[in-house]
């Protein structure tokens, strides 16, 4: 090591250049190992980037992205003036906030309870069951929900009818969906998230817990004074990262559950679903891309902020 330093120190400008080339050559294997990924991201993530320009034109088929007339910020202006941008941002952020807050509370709750279980068999089986929803496609989630809730022969309505009650028609009532979507999201994600917290609980020093018990702490006190504080770092990190993604919606879930049912759009339209519709059925490439770009920029800022905060608290976890 020291030798290398000496060489570098005595090197002239020309030699330095060769030094870079030599370094590149020295790590050629590692570079080659990264190469497939570099090519991959270049092809599928960097190549489309110049196409963002489409957000500033009035797209037509013959001109394509770069030949269509430039109209500056008109697409953004339209979106802002129509109130669309505000509504979409509001929906997306509120849903995400509900997902994050309730999701973490439920996951911690389940993890703590799991930790109290003594039966290994019970833990294993219940975890497997809770993981099931995490494994299925969003398409199937849409079907499950429809099968439970649809008006004509859904499970819930079958029960209601049997009980002599009036049928319930959520698919024509936008007001109930914020609650329903949150429940569906929790149903799908909690199995996974609870394992994260469960692992964090396992990481808490067992001796502290035993010591507390010996000191006469009861079960509630143990949870309140030892486990919950022990989970705080994990929670804080997870929350901060979630904040970074606050303007990114769960397209698969919303699209498959709500689909093209426009009655429900007022409460269920998020940025992703709007972009998809605008680009495809309404065929407004430019406007769709304008919303997408807006989302990217806000998202970028949010990630930068949250990463900055993470770096302050737990430098080990920061992304870059």
């Amino acid at each position: 090591m020291g030798k290398g330093k000496a060489v570098a120190a005595s090197a002239t400008g020309g030699k330095k250049k060769r030094g870079i080339r030599e370094t590149l050559w020295k790590y050629r294997t590692l570079e080659l190992m990264c190469l497939p990924a570099i090519i991959f991201f270049f092809m599928f993530s960097y190549m489309p980037l110049p196409g963002i320009y489409v957000a500033f034109v009035n797209y037509n088929y013959q001109g394509g992205i770069f030949g269509s007339p430039f109209i500056g910020l008109q697409n953004f202006q339209f979106l802002a003036e129509s109130g669309k941008l505000f509504e979409l941002t509001k929906n997306t952020i509120l849903y995400n906030l509900a997902f994050i807050i309730l999701g973490n509370i439920l996951a911690i709750f389940v993890a703590i309870l799991l930790n109290e279980m003594r039966s290994k068999w019970f833990k294993k089986v219940s975890q497997t069951m809770m993981f099931l929803p995490y494994f299925i496609s969003q398409v199937l989630v849409g079907i499950l929900v429809y099968n439970l809730l649809n008006y004509d022969y859904g499970f819930v309505n079958t029960i209601l009818v049997k009980l002599g009650l009036e049928k319930w028609g959520p698919y024509s009532d936008p007001t109930v969906w914020p609650v329903l979507l949150v429940i569906i999201h929790l149903w799908q994600q909690t199995g996974y998230n609870s394992v994260v917290y469960f692992a964090a609980i396992m990481g808490i020093d067992a001796e502290i817990i035993e010591a507390a018990k010996v000191d006469g702490a009861n079960g509630f006190q143990k949870i309140r004074y030892i486990i919950l504080p022990g989970l705080r770092p994990t929670l804080v990190i997870l929350l901060l990262f979630a904040m970074g993604g606050i303007v990114k919606g769960n397209f698969g879930l919303f699209y498959n559950v709500v689909g093209t049912n426009s009655i429900l759009f007022p409460t269920t339209d998020i940025i992703e679903t709007y972009v998809y519709r605008a680009a495809t059925t309404e065929f407004n490439f430019s406007r769709a891309s304008a919303v997408g770009l807006y989302q990217s920029i806000i998202g970028f800022i949010m990630v930068m902020i949250s990463n900055f905060v993470v770096k302050k608290i737990e430098p080990d976890y920061s992304l870059f």
Binding site: I38, P48, P50, I65, Y276, S289, S296, F300
Partner: peptide, 21 residues
């Protein structure tokens, strides 16, 4: 390289340019 890779999750071109590409 890490940043090169991570950056792609921050900024994406969106559906339309991706589809055309």
């Amino acid at each position: 390289i890490s940043f090169y890779i991570y950056f792609t999750s921050l900024f994406s071109a969106g559906l339309a340019p991706y589809y055309l590409l």
